[in-house]
Write a protein that binds this DNA or RNA. Structure first.
Length: 361
DNA sequence: TACGCGTGGTG
DNA sequence: TCACCAAGCGT
């Protein structure tokens, strides 16, 4: 083992192994003076919060194609943005995305602030994202601390304190390595190291550019770090979802309240979701038919089992809650995944009926 | 400080 | 099948 890890060692590795991403300026082009579009950096960083690169790529492509600038996004309709975000999860990010875009346009002339402090004052931009944008888009020497950095630092310095207690200590350790030169490339280099070499499981210590100064590698503790406090078990909640299809093909749906779980997203009418089975809650009287199979979905803090009921509704059906989405405006991809699973089951059941034996039609 | 907040990949 | 995990933020 050798003394202290140096940023230069990681930057040299990044020059050879940087991953190619649509929101990135590669290290060669960055040295030639090219800077990434702050809008693209912001959008990608928000999408990447607690989300994998693989999941983000397609969404980033569609968003930038549809809304090429922050002004375009600020002018978009809420429902369009929520529909485009559907499936990516953590929907408060999409609501804050619109708030942030509109603030940048209304209060900053359509240009993102170029300091960490200015950025962190915007909706949906916390300590990590503010530092990341400041470093990557504006070349500020800010220390970026995300899950990758925490893991890499915990291993480099063999920190046995469990997260989240260790966060402050790991931040200080990271701050001691952050360079004044190429802070943006350095931030992305640590992410790439954490994603490809210093991975949560089975780290590839043998080919790590920081293998020499890594204390956990010397101690043999790298695969076990960072330690984390045990998590609470997830309870099972149950509920009812009602998929009503009108004779003209329109679907009865609800826009969920703007805050809370799946806030602002489309959903099927139904009961509460609770550990003690709630009462059925049909949105209108009809010949509801319960499917044999339940829709199962796991959220951050509970497992959900939804009993799905379907019904054919007359063209003049009227519901107290919700509204009908015309057949040609309904896209399953606009729904959050839990609701799309419900639709998939219902759609199969509707299809099975309509293609069944002739005497059933 | 602790919790609420999604989803898809992985071993 | 299932727990764990991924570029956190807001309250």
């Amino acid at each position: 083992m050798r003394e202290k890890p140096r940023a230069s060692e990681l930057l040299a590795w990044y020059d050879r192994h940087a991953r190619d991403m649509p929101w990135r300026v590669p290290p060669g082009a960055r040295k030639a003076g090219q800077r990434p579009d702050p809008y693209a950096v912001w959008l990608s960083e928000v999408m990447l919060q607690q989300t994998t690169v693989a999941a983000v790529r397609g969404y980033f492509h569609r968003f930038t194609l549809r809304w090429p600038t922050v002004s375009d996004l600020a002018a978009a309709q809420d429902t369009q943005v929520m529909a485009e975000w559907a499936g990516l999860g953590y929907y408060a990010r999409a609501r804050n995305l619109m708030k942030c875009a509109r603030t940048v346009v209304a209060e900053h002339g359509g240009e993102f602030p170029d300091t960490r402090e200015g950025l962190q004052a915007l909706p949906g931009i916390g300590p990590y994202t503010a530092s990341a944008i400041a470093a990557i888009a504006f070349g500020r020497p800010e220390t970026v601390v995300d899950g990758n950095v925490e893991r890499v630092m915990a291993r480099l310095y063999d920190v046995a304190t469990p997260l989240p207690t260790a966060k402050k200590e790991l931040t200080q350790l990271a701050d001691g390595i952050t360079p004044d030169q190429r802070p943006g490339d350095y931030a992305q280099a640590v992410m790439d190291l954490g994603a490809t070499i210093c991975t949560p499981r089975n780290p590839a210590c043998g080919i790590c550019p920081w293998r020499a100064p890594c204390r956990a590698r010397a101690a043999g503790t790298a695969p076990d770090l960072p330690l984390k406090l045990p998590k609470k078990p997830k309870p099972v909640r149950v509920g009812y979802a009602y998929v009503g299809r009108r004779a003209d093909g329109a679907w009865l749906m609800e826009r969920r309240p703007d805050s809370g779980l799946l806030g602002g997203m489309l959903g099927w009418p139904g009961s509460d979701w609770a550990e003690i089975p709630p009462a059925p809650a049909p949105p209108l009287p009809a010949d509801w038919h319960m499917l044999t199979e339940e829709a199962r979905h796991t959220f951050t803090h509970f497992h959900l089992r939804l009993k799905v009921l379907i019904a054919d509704l007359p063209v003049d059906a009227a519901a107290d809650h919700g509204h009908f989405i015309p057949r040609d405006e309904f896209r399953p991809s606009d729904l959050p995944t839990a609701m799309r699973k419900v639709f998939d089951l219902a759609h199969s059941a509707f299809t099975a009926v309509s293609t069944g034996p002739a005497e059933d039609r």
